[in-house]
């Protein structure tokens, strides 16, 4: 059973459209959804949670069709963190506990308060007075405290300093120690995703350019830096993106399409994404 299965989903509004989206998150894995602002990440997440209906196609979460009546109950198994804080300003973490206790079936009060302590969040301070980092940590505490099987995180690390980000990524990493737990995390901070993801999916202008195992991507692609005239001898089939200056060419290449003996540099997911998005500009 897949944690998330998106089949042939299309959604358009005005001048933006998500076209023919097919995406799978196998159980027990972490999938990073990358894309520039406006690529369709948040829309995809809303459609996953059935907060938005696709024009066509189906989405299956933990084996259940998300348009079915059973899905509402299944949301008990899904922890969601959105990119902005959505708790009313006047509530404090204590109030949130009282509210959530009566919303989620598996709400674990003890666990919630232990997260508050780990994250150093004051129980009686109202959200108006929380920093962005604190609001994010609280959303994460809430998402984890009802023992979900799936975490859906939309830009859960943006706006946070590197220390907090690392702390939070660790939490998500630990979450998937259990093989029945899966995570979908969308971000435009690619380096964060590179740290913990098993799969990387790249959404660009509403289309999924690829969804691959992260480590395989790092094995398959490399960076090639050559003077302009030498570069001309590289077969076009190997070049997946390039940047030209007056002095040299830097290109993203597929290692197995290169003639042997040409030295390349290791690349990062961020570089892969940047080159693929820019194309041949």
């Amino acid at each position: 059973m897949y944690a998330i299965e998106i089949k042939n989903v299309n959604k358009s509004f005005g001048d933006f459209a998500i076209r023919n989206l097919n995406l799978i998150l196998p159980s027990g894995c972490i999938l990073g959804l990358v894309g520039e602002n406006g690529a369709g990440k948040s829309t995809t997440i809303k459609m996953i949670m059935n907060a938005l209906s696709p024009d066509s196609g189906t989405i299956s979460i933990l084996g259940t069709d998300n348009q079915s009546d059973a899905f509402t109950k299944l949301k008990n198994e899904i922890g969601v963190v959105l990119d902005e804080s959505y708790f009313p300003d006047v509530l404090n973490p204590q109030n949130v506990n009282a509210v959530m206790k009566n919303i989620y079936q598996n709400w674990d009060e003890k666990l919630y308060f232990s997260y508050l302590q780990t994250f150093n969040l004051p129980k009686e301070k109202i959200f108006k007075e929380f920093s962005r980092g604190m609001k994010m940590k609280l959303s994460i505490a809430v998402a984890l405290s009802h023992h979900p099987k799936l975490l859906v995180l939309d830009e859960a690390t943006s706006g946070l300093d590197p220390f907090v980000r690392d702390e939070i990524l660790d939490v998500f990493n630990e979450f998937t120690r259990d093989e029945t737990h899966s995570v979908l995390i969308s971000s435009h901070i690619v380096s964060d995703l590179e740290k913990i993801c098993d799969y990387i999916a790249f959404l660009h202008n509403g289309s999924l350019l690829f969804c691959e195992e992260k480590d395989r991507l790092l094995e398959e692609y490399a960076i090639l830096r050559l003077p302009r005239d030498t570069f001309a001898s590289i077969p076009a089939s190997a070049i997946k993106g390039k940047k030209q200056t007056d002095y040299d060419v830097t290109a993203l290449v597929k290692k197995n399409a290169l003639p042997s003996g040409i030295p390349t540099e290791k690349t990062t997911i961020e570089e892969i994404i940047l080159f693929l998005a820019k194309g041949d500009k």
Binding site: L74, N76, L82, F87, Y104, Q105
Partner: peptide, 8 residues
Amino acid sequence: QFQLMLPC
């Protein structure tokens, strides 16, 4: 927006 993500 968030409450649409809850089991309500």
